[in-house]
Computed example of a mutant assay.
Amino acid sequence: MTALIIDTDPGVDDAFAIALACASPDVDLLGVTTVFGNVGLAMTTRNALRVLALYGREDVPVAAGADRPLVYPHPHRARYVHGEDGLGNRADLLPERATGVAGTDAVALMASLLESAAEPVTIVPIGPLTNIALLLAAHPAVRGKIERVVIMGGGVGIGNVTAAAEFNIWSDPEAARRVLVEEDVPTVLVPLDLTHRCTVDGAWLDRLAASGPRGRTLVELIAAYREFYSRNLGIDGSVVHDAVAMAEAISPGLLVTETYPVDVECAPGPARGTVIADRRSAIARDRSGVDGSREVAVAVDADLDAVREFLLSRLSS
């Protein structure tokens, strides 16, 4: 059984990731925390509650977190991808949850869940890393309770919101740098380079829609998102970034990782939010004086069909 805390900014692909956790019998979902990102905090929180309601998860505590980055204002939301409501303008397809948000904030909820956990917990941040940076700064004692942090973010060779930066990291580069560079917890980074390769096609979505009411609802949510990727990538299908990271969190080793020192560009300009992975040999790094930097496991490959089948088999259940 994998104990999970999800930190999220739903977001269509976030909805698929939350659904994947809810649909997996080997997951103990301890809590869900929300952050600004694809849309504003009030909407990401409402969306998280509604996705949990789709799966009857009234038991999972939900707490709202940061509504802005650590340092600079957030330049813009991703409504052009996820719709005005964050769920393809179809959030009303989901039921309202009877249980509202917890009477605490995201960081306090995560700290409490970690402190009381009998076994180490995996944290899955699939939005900007603001809440995670605040948690590790304000509650350093909980590091020992964290099994690993599995992050969807960054692009080693590509970007999406800019030529070089991926949306989650770009939304709060200072927070991302604290988590990826300055902290010392086992971390897996699942970047765009791999999530794009795990794109699901129209046939996959049709199979999910035919699996039952929940699968059909998820496919209806993704309609506008699917159209966006059809226009931009020329495919009939969709990229489900956050669900790929969730799959690795649930089934460690599903993705192939390589370990590199990484950094995050925080300076203003066209490179802001870029994740820089130092893929040189240890000898080359040592000669340039950077050997010994903290290393992060970066997902670089996978059996792509196995990833798609893992997602479909869980979400169809």
Score class of each variant (00 low, 15 high):
residue 218 L to I: 02
residue 305 D to T: 10
residue 277 A to R: 11
residue 227 E to G: 03
residue 208 L to G: 01
residue 187 T to N: 01
residue 213 P to F: 00
residue 248 E to W: 03
residue 235 I to Y: 05
residue 210 A to M: 07
residue 299 A to R: 06
residue 221 L to E: 07
residue 185 V to Q: 00
residue 272 R to Y: 07
residue 249 A to M: 09
residue 227 E to C: 05
residue 283 I to M: 15
residue 208 L to K: 00
residue 254 L to S: 05
residue 228 F to V: 01
residue 246 M to N: 13
residue 210 A to P: 09
residue 261 P to Q: 13
residue 249 A to W: 09
residue 206 D to M: 09
residue 269 G to C: 09
residue 276 I to N: 15
residue 191 P to E: 08
residue 280 R to C: 15
residue 205 L to M: 13
residue 219 V to W: 12
residue 185 V to W: 05
residue 240 V to P: 13
residue 183 E to A: 13
residue 204 W to K: 00
residue 286 D to A: 15
residue 286 D to Y: 13
residue 254 L to F: 06
residue 272 R to H: 02
residue 245 A to E: 09
residue 284 A to N: 12
residue 292 G to Q: 09
residue 223 A to R: 13
residue 201 D to L: 07
residue 253 G to S: 13
residue 204 W to S: 00
residue 232 N to E: 14
residue 237 G to P: 03
residue 224 A to V: 12
residue 302 A to K: 09
residue 213 P to S: 02
residue 205 L to T: 05
residue 208 L to F: 08
residue 259 T to K: 12
residue 217 T to W: 06
residue 307 V to R: 13
residue 286 D to P: 00
residue 224 A to Q: 12
residue 297 A to G: 00
residue 262 V to T: 08
residue 281 S to A: 14
residue 253 G to N: 06
residue 283 I to Y: 15
residue 231 R to D: 12
residue 252 P to L: 08
residue 273 G to D: 06
residue 220 E to M: 03
residue 289 G to M: 02
residue 273 G to Y: 09
residue 215 G to W: 04
residue 308 R to Y: 07
residue 183 E to S: 10
residue 297 A to V: 04
residue 235 I to L: 06
residue 244 V to C: 07
residue 197 R to S: 08
residue 245 A to F: 04
residue 191 P to G: 05
residue 307 V to T: 11
residue 203 A to K: 05
residue 185 V to Y: 04
residue 263 D to E: 12
residue 209 A to K: 00
residue 182 E to C: 13
residue 232 N to I: 10
residue 228 F to L: 01
residue 256 V to Q: 11
residue 278 D to V: 10
residue 228 F to K: 02
residue 220 E to F: 00
residue 246 M to I: 15
residue 192 L to S: 08
residue 297 A to W: 01
residue 242 D to R: 15
residue 200 V to T: 07
residue 301 D to H: 09
residue 256 V to I: 15
residue 249 A to V: 11
residue 221 L to S: 10
residue 195 T to C: 02
residue 191 P to C: 01
residue 302 A to W: 07
residue 287 R to I: 15
residue 296 V to E: 01
residue 243 A to R: 10
residue 296 V to R: 04
residue 271 A to I: 14
residue 305 D to G: 11
residue 281 S to M: 14
residue 242 D to P: 14
residue 290 V to G: 12
residue 277 A to T: 10
residue 271 A to D: 01
residue 208 L to P: 06
residue 264 V to C: 06
residue 231 R to S: 13
residue 229 Y to K: 00
residue 300 V to R: 03
residue 197 R to C: 02
residue 257 T to R: 03
residue 306 A to G: 07
residue 236 D to C: 10
residue 305 D to N: 12
residue 202 G to F: 02
residue 267 A to Q: 13
residue 221 L to N: 07
residue 249 A to S: 11
residue 224 A to L: 12
residue 286 D to Q: 10
residue 306 A to V: 11
residue 271 A to C: 02
residue 239 V to N: 10
residue 244 V to Y: 08
residue 308 R to W: 08
residue 211 S to C: 14
residue 234 G to H: 09
residue 256 V to T: 15
residue 192 L to E: 01
residue 256 V to W: 06
residue 299 A to D: 01
residue 282 A to M: 14
residue 247 A to W: 05
residue 308 R to A: 06
residue 221 L to A: 04
residue 229 Y to F: 08
residue 208 L to C: 01
residue 236 D to N: 15
residue 248 E to H: 05
residue 299 A to G: 02
residue 302 A to H: 09
residue 241 H to F: 14
residue 236 D to G: 08
residue 259 T to H: 07
residue 275 V to R: 03
residue 250 I to S: 03
